[in-house]
Write a protein that binds this DNA or RNA. Structure first.
Length: 287
DNA sequence: CTCCAGGTCTCAT
DNA sequence: ATGAGACATGGA
């Protein structure tokens, strides 16, 4: 059976549970079943008995899997660009092998459009419902998987059908975004060609339901833009409680938080953000 | 039952 | 530029 050796820390379970991806199944300890590849239609069954152990490939193409898992990321070099402070140190110690995935563009865009004002279990539930109702069924061993529905499919089924998957007001946004992609009005290849982050963001925020936060998530998780720094309620808490705690009110505004994030955390700040986010969700109090 | 969730959009200063 | 409300649904 083929396996993937990582020369730097890698923790499959932590990576898949860190709020960047929502569809993977975990039928037994250490085993994960999901769909990957450019269009999210390539099944993979992976087994990692413990963090940093080799990843056994029970099913799937090793090259596609390696790319998806960020196998080529030089984690020590990436982490060396982070600021050295106690909060970063704690986050790195909590899950040293956390990696940023390379997700399918549309799947990532769509799931984060549905993510607003929902907790992670709810995002997963909506995502699974959409897949089961409108995705293509894929049988792999004893597992039945469903691809994330294409823009064409979601545009065709319409908003009402999407509401029945529990999307609420997000159905309007998802239906509109799907239509924009399906019609060719917005091209998800464009952000990949953009030089600067601002241009890449501008391509994505043309879509309904994609604001600055979702755009940064998509750039980070689907376009390997590790300089994109999503600021959600958790990251805002982290920065306000841990970094700007003593600052005057005037320096704790959204604009100041953004400015701090973009200058303090370095060129791989998106990566740093994911370590902080994952750690905070398990340790930080809501204040 | 109440509170809140990996926000965005609109419309008001 | 900055701030207040509305928005639908379900998990905790």
């Amino acid at each position: 059976m083929p396996s993937l050796e990582f020369s730097h820390p890698f923790d499959l379970a932590a990576t898949l549970a860190s709020g960047q991806i929502f569809h993977w199944e975990n039928p037994e300890p250490g085993t994960f079943v999901g769909l990957i590849g450019e269009h999210g239609d390539h099944p993979a069954i992976l087994h990692q008995p413990a963090p940093d152990a080799p990843v056994a490939i029970h099913h799937g193409d090793p090259h596609t899997i390696a790319h998806y898992l960020g196998h080529h990321h030089d984690l020590p070099s990436i982490q060396a660009t982070f600021p050295q402070d106690a909060h970063i140190a704690a986050a790195l110690a909590w899950s040293p092998g956390l990696r940023i995935l390379s997700q399918p563009r549309w799947e990532c865009t769509a799931t984060f459009i549905t993510s607003s004002m929902k907790n992670i279990p709810a995002i997963r539930k909506m995502s699974i419902a959409l897949r089961q109702r409108f995705g293509k069924e894929i049988q792999i061993g004893s597992h039945t998987l469903h691809t994330y529905p294409t823009p064409e499919t979601l545009a065709a089924v319409g908003e009402t059908a999407l509401r029945q998957c529990g999307l609420g007001y997000r159905a309007t946004s998802l239906a509109s975004a799907a239509e924009s992609i399906a019609s060719g009005q917005v091209d998800l290849a464009a952000p990949a060609h953009a030089q600067d982050l601002e241009t890449a963001r501008a391509h994505l925020t043309q879509l309904r339901g994609v604001g600055p936060k979702v755009a940064d998530c998509v750039l980070l998780f689907a376009y390997a833009r590790h300089d994109a720094f999503p600021i959600d309620v958790w990251v805002e808490r982290i920065i306000l409680q841990l970094y700007l705690a003593k600052k005057h009110k005037k320096n704790r505004t959204p604009a100041k938080i953004r400015e701090f994030a973009d200058t303090y955390f370095g060129p791989n700040r998106g990566y740093a953000q994911q370590f902080l986010f994952h750690h905070a969700r398990h340790h930080l109090t809501k204040k």
